[in-house]
Amino acid sequence: MPKPLDPAAAPATRRMRQHAALVLREAGIGVALVLLVAVFASLSPIFFTSNNITNIFTQIAINVILAVGMTFVILVGGIDLSVGSVMAFCAVVAGTVLKAEGLAESTAIPLALAASVAVGAVCGLANGAISAYWGIPSFIVTLGMLNVARGAALQWTQARTIYEFPDAFNNFGSATVLGVPAIFLVALALVLLGWFVLNRTVFGRLVYAIGNNEEAVRLAGHNTRLIKIAAFVIAGVAVGIGAVVYMTRLTIASPILGIGFELNAIAAVIIGGTSLSGGRGSIIGTLLGACIIGVLANGLILIGMSDFLRQMVTGAVIILAVILDVYRARLTRRAA
């Protein structure tokens, strides 16, 4: 006669299955990345040169930073289409602080970073609060913020570009540490911080829980609105950091920068295995997804593919990732 199952062991068993599925999903994304690298390395002799590897790390750094914040939003079942525009607004505010008269470099640089992060956090707070308290889909709210932030950036500068920043600020964008771009190390630091929050804190567990079953979390006594708002604020903070990092690379602050960046961030999150319906995914998967996008873009350029065809290929990869996500969700439901 089979031994009856212990009901208390069911949640632990379920968590073990979910963790195993997550590891397998990330392993699959990693294998896809390795295969992509192998293909381009065989097609282009300069793909594996140190200069090109450094270029790839530099190019994906901003997308990784934005995608880390986007992961939190998508995990709670939301979406943020305002990322690129908010980034431009953060940049011009930070640029204004850097150009303020009477401020020493040692003071202006941290103040600019603080101002950029504050602007991003306020925009994220507005997105999250309106969506959570009025029950408006985040797609609509952030679409409105996209226009508000872009218009604010243009109004702030009268559509002018801000430039001539301190040398110490500009030099960071081209600095390397043991051959690795400093801005990529910033992105990696945010990935590690995001991983810790999602996997080692109560808040992180609640983020996943809301994406899976928001009503159950609410009935358990948690304020789901505040948690969802916090996810949007985290995304805004990531945008503020990304804006300053991008400024160090371009050495300018333009009110038109960041156009389309939200799509790249969303693509990295989806390709990395995070479900659009929320509740499933990881920061490590997001990092791998951003790497796939960066390697794909770089490799297609090296083999001489035109801009138009590159856009078509990238779009096809995103669609394929969404289709795979649908199939993964079906398999997960059957396994449960």
Rank of each mutant, 00 (worst) to 15 (best):
V39T: 11
V39Q: 07
F40Q: 12
F40S: 05
A41Q: 13
S42V: 11
S42G: 15
S42D: 13
S42C: 14
L43F: 14
L43N: 12
S44K: 12
S44W: 11
S44F: 08
S44A: 14
P45V: 10
P45S: 10
I46E: 12
F47T: 01
F47D: 06
F48H: 02
F48D: 11
F48W: 15
T49C: 07
T49Q: 14
T49I: 06
T49N: 14
S50P: 00
S50M: 14
N51C: 00
N52D: 11
N52R: 10
I53S: 12
I53C: 10
I53W: 14
T54G: 08
T54K: 05
T54M: 06
T54Q: 09
N55L: 05
I56S: 06
I56L: 08
F57A: 08
T58I: 03
T58N: 05
Q59R: 12
Q59W: 04
Q59H: 08
Q59V: 04
I60K: 02
I60H: 01
A61F: 02
A61S: 09
A61G: 04
I62C: 00
I62L: 10
I62D: 02
I62E: 10
I62V: 05
N63L: 06
N63T: 09
N63P: 02
V64E: 11
V64L: 09
V64Q: 08
I65Y: 03
I65P: 00
I65L: 07
L66A: 01
L66M: 08
A67N: 03
V68P: 03
V68W: 13
V68Q: 12
G69Q: 07
G69C: 10
M70H: 01
M70Q: 15
T71K: 15
T71G: 11
T71Y: 15
T71H: 15
T71V: 13
F72K: 08
F72W: 12
V73H: 14
V73M: 12
V73G: 05
V73E: 06
I74K: 01
L75N: 07
L75H: 10
L75K: 13
V76R: 04
V76I: 10
V76D: 03
G77C: 11
G78N: 11
G78V: 01
I79T: 10
I79F: 13
D80R: 01
D80A: 03
L81N: 05
L81A: 04
S82M: 04
S82A: 06
V83Q: 02
G84R: 07
S85R: 04
S85T: 03
M87L: 15
M87S: 13
A88E: 08
A88K: 07
A88C: 08
A88W: 06
C90F: 08
C90R: 05
A91Q: 09
A91H: 10
V92D: 05
V92P: 02
